[in-house]
Design a protein around this nucleic acid. Structure first.
Length: 379
DNA sequence: CTAGGGTTAG
């Protein structure tokens, strides 16, 4: 089997000529630890982390004792390969022996690895506590943030607050930044406590350390929406404009949603135009908010208009967008149109969900011909 | 340096 010319040239000229260490070892060489570490470093820098691990595993049987640098390189490779359990074991066994370890960086990677990549913030928190009890190691604020965010996305606010308290503790004293603040606000909204979210925001402001950005303000605006505090939401946006903060598509969607919930359709439309005039491109959610708002009022003309517009702009509708459109058709008594769209959505390969079925069933019931319509085909 | 924020029924 011969390689095509281009590949054979590559393999003969651009790969290192030295035989791999494994081969050297087999031939009876006994390289110094220094040269081993250099090779491990080289492998690690060229991102051949599996090779690092493999080479390390051969050291013992060749009576070569690794030092702390060897272990450092190995731990880095394990972390890169997301082998967190093995990395954790090494960190905890080698830590006390090697005072020159980049301890904090290892802890950061381990806590974030378990908390975010493994989606196991509980384990991350255990490690965080271990780390804090080992004086002299203070994980980065990002590590605290990602744990908070991990707990928030699980809806576990008790734990999120626990991390928050560690963050403000005497030996840490990290300020609450926008990342933390927005995550916590969203968390409280998620568990149905928007009033607590607003209070948390106010506390952050009173502490004086927070300069809210558009993300934090959007989370706050969404809390106001949940609380039905439409006027406060508007005031918030006005003060943002006065501050000179750049509003974006997400902020506008949230604001427009508030107008719809407050029954101000024309004002919602005006804000949409304002957004476009400012050069902010509406995305799928922006359009979905508009479509849903007009569908609920039975303004199917507007709904279809927005659908065409978004398709023209290359913004793809999702299952929520289509459900909102079907709702509009059903409200107008055009169940057949809704059902035709339903089939099209399925043909597009979009996964339909219970919301879509519920919307269609409701639409069919509204028409009253539950027994002889396409409803039977819904199965 | 960035992350983090917004949409659906009965």
């Amino acid at each position: 089997m011969s390689l095509p010319p281009r590949l054979s040239r590559l393999s003969s000229s651009s790969l290192p000529k030295t035989p791999p260490l494994q081969t050297l070892l087999k031939r009876g060489f006994t390289p110094t630890l220094k040269s081993i570490n250099q090779l491990l470093l080289f492998l690690s820098h060229s991102r051949r982390f599996n090779a690092v691990i493999h080479l390390f595993s051969q050291l013992d049987s060749n009576k070569i004792n690794p030092n702390s640098q060897t272990h450092s390189i190995l731990i880095c490779s394990l972390l890169k390969l997301h082998k967190f359990e093995e990395a954790e074991h090494l960190v905890s066994t080698q830590m006390s022996k090697c005072p020159d370890f980049p301890k904090t960086r290892f802890w950061d990677s381990l806590i974030q690895g378990f908390g975010v990549i493994r989606n196991n913030p509980e384990k991350g928190l255990l490690l965080l506590k271990d780390c804090l009890s080992d004086s002299g190691t203070l994980p980065s604020s990002f590590t605290f943030c990602s744990l908070i965010h991990g707990f928030v996305s699980q809806g576990n606010m008790d734990r999120a607050i626990e991390v928050l308290e560690l963050m403000t503790g005497d030996n840490v004293r990290y300020p609450f930044d926008n990342f933390v603040c927005s995550s916590v606000i969203v968390g409280f909204c998620k568990i149905g406590k928007p009033e607590v979210a607003v209070r948390f925001f106010e506390n952050c402001m009173n502490s004086g350390a927070l300069k809210p950005n558009v993300v934090t303000y959007t989370a706050l605006l969404s809390s106001f929406n949940l609380l039905g505090k439409f006027d406060e939401g508007c005031e918030l946006v006005y003060s943002m404009k006065k501050e000179g903060l750049a509003l974006d598509a997400i902020l506008y969607s949230c604001w427009i949603l508030g107008y719809f919930r407050n029954g101000c359709l024309m004002e919602a439309l005006r804000k949409y135009r304002e957004m476009v005039e400012r050069g902010i491109n509406p995305d799928t959610v922006s359009y979905t908010v508009l479509i849903d708002g007009f569908s609920k009022e039975g303004s199917v003309g507007k709904v279809v208009g927005f659908l065409k517009k978004m398709l023209k702009d290359g913004v793809m509708p999702n299952v929520i967008t289509y459900t909102a459109i079907m709702l509009g058709f059903c409200k107008e008594g055009k169940f057949e149109k809704a059902f035709r769209l339903f089939k099209e959505v399925q043909d597009m390969g979009i996964e339909v969900d219970e919301f879509m079925y519920a919307t269609l069933i409701d639409g069919a019931c509204r028409k009253g011909d539950l027994h002889d319509t396409a409803l039977y085909q819904l199965r």
